[in-house]
Simulated assay, not measured.
Amino acid sequence: MAFGRRRKDRAESGYVPGEQDTAQEAAGAADGPAQGPYDVADRPSEEGYVDLGALRIAATQGLALRLEVEEKTKRVVAVTLDLDGSSLQLQAFAAPKSETLWDEIRAQIVQSVSSQGGTADELEGRLGTELLARVPAQAQDGSKGYRVARFVGVDGPRWFLRGVFGGPAAMNPDAAGPLEEVFRNVVVVRGDAPLPPRDLLQLNLPRDASPLPKRGEESAKPEPPRRGPEITTIG
């Protein structure tokens, strides 16, 4: 297959994303999407969500967010969510009305990983077709190892959402569960402005980042995630 992409079954890959619930999928086909990520037209309410502009993130106890800013342009290019020692980076892009991007983007990710001497295995998981990438990296003790990242993607109406799981959620299905639920509840706000395909959708600082309740205190309604470092600069 092009770019050295390898499709593996779950046992061979060492990662088991989980069984699909075919009954729920069949029911969802008749009634619309059974689970997200969602377009804003399907979930217009902002209640219980943190508004980041193009993305709305469901409030979850213990969740922290970091906004990543491109140094040259000073624009927010991604949001990374941290929960229970794992991370999920999210980016939303404009997409053609009648085409999908995930197949092409997967091929490009494989090419990039392969050029670094790594591998990328294509899997069918709980979030659809995924890539499990292993990129050579140096450990803190100087020994050689691999950094593992799990790429997922969703083609929506005129938008594409990419997620990258890191930490235990990249390999362990049990550890991945909480962040997968966060991913499924993401709402994408595409907007009506004409944009070239693959242009990043605009992300903004949250309008409200109230702290989560202290341990032992009860909260009457979901609180927004705690804000991590205000800005993480990337080159």
Rank of each mutant, 00 (worst) to 15 (best):
V148M: 03
S143Q: 09
R10D: 11
G167T: 01
T129Y: 07
I234E: 06
G28I: 05
P136H: 03
A95D: 07
T232P: 00
R134T: 08
V154A: 12
E180N: 07
A120N: 01
W159M: 00
M1W: 14
G14C: 05
V77I: 14
R207Q: 14
E124I: 12
Y38H: 12
A169Y: 03
A54D: 06
R150I: 00
K144S: 13
R75L: 12
W159I: 00
I57Q: 05
F3E: 14
S219V: 08
R215L: 10
R134G: 12
G156E: 05
V186K: 03
Q89H: 08
V187F: 03
E25D: 11
L67H: 01
Q140L: 12
P194M: 03
D192V: 11
A11D: 13
V110I: 09
S13M: 06
P17S: 02
S45W: 06
D9L: 11
A64F: 08
V188L: 08
D39G: 15
L201S: 02
Q108W: 10
V189R: 13
E230P: 09
A92Q: 01
Q138V: 15
A220Y: 05
G166H: 06
Q140T: 09
L131F: 07
A11R: 14
R184T: 00
V79I: 09
Q111H: 13
V110D: 06
P37A: 01
L90M: 03
E130L: 06
V76F: 01
G125S: 04
G156W: 06
V148G: 03
I109F: 14
S210G: 10
A149G: 09
L161C: 02
F151M: 05
E19Q: 13
L179W: 07
A133M: 00
L90D: 05
I234C: 04
P96K: 11
G167F: 01
L65K: 09
A58N: 01
S114T: 15
R106S: 04
T100H: 07
A107P: 04
A59Q: 09
G145D: 11
E180C: 03
S210C: 06
P33C: 08
T80K: 08
S45C: 04
L161Y: 00
D155P: 00
R134L: 09
T100C: 06
R6G: 00
S210M: 10
